[in-house]
Amino acid sequence: MDAPTKKLKVATTSLAGCFGCHMSFLDIDERLFALLDLVEFDRSPITDIKHCGPCDIGIVEGGLCNAENVHVLREFRANCRILIAIGACAVNGGLPAQRNSLSLPAILEEIYHAQHGLTHGSIPDDPELPLPLDKVHPLHEVVKVDYFIPGCPPSGDAIWKVLTDLLAGREPELGHGLIHYD
C-alpha cells in the first residue's frame, strides 16, 4: 500500500501585475477542486496568509516596480523549491515596463500636478509608501527563475498543464496552442 501522500504546498503572489494571471489560474474552473486534493495553498491572494513559508511551488505574477516587490520576490525565492514566473509582466516586464522609456519626474509632474481635474496637486511622500524603482524589471533579473509561462495572460489550460506536469513529476511542457504571447 502506498503511504498517504503529503500535499504539495503552493504559494502565489501578484507584484507589478494586474491580477489577470491569477484570474487565468481560476479559469481552470471546476478543475480547482481536483487540484485541492493535491495541493495546499500558502501565501496567496485567495488566503489570509501574509508571508510565504517553506513551499514546493511559488508562482509569481507581475514584474518589479518598487522596493516592496523586490522584498516579496526574494521571500518567495528563499522559500520555494520551484519558482515560476507567470505572464508577460513577470517574464519581461510587460505593459507596466512601457514607462521605462519615460522619466519619472515627467510622470510625477503629469499625474500629481498637471492632471485634468486636480484641485491642488501634491506628491504623496509618506514613508508607508514603498520606494518605486526607476525602471520596471522582470523577475529573472533579480532572482533565479525555474520556469516561465508566457502570455498576457497565459490561459487556464496552460497553467493547468504546467501544474499537473509538475505534480506528476514530469518536466512541464506547453505544446501547440498553449504557448502564446498575447
Binding site: 518598487n66 516592496e68 507596466p96 519615460l102 503629469e110 499625474i111 508607508e128 509608501l129
Partner: peptide, 11 residues
C-alpha cells in the same frame, strides 16, 4: 494605503 504605481495615464 494604496502602495503601487504604474503610470498608465502617462505612457
Amino acid at each position: 494605503h494604496i502602495v503601487e504605481f504604474r503610470g498608465f495615464e502617462k505612457f
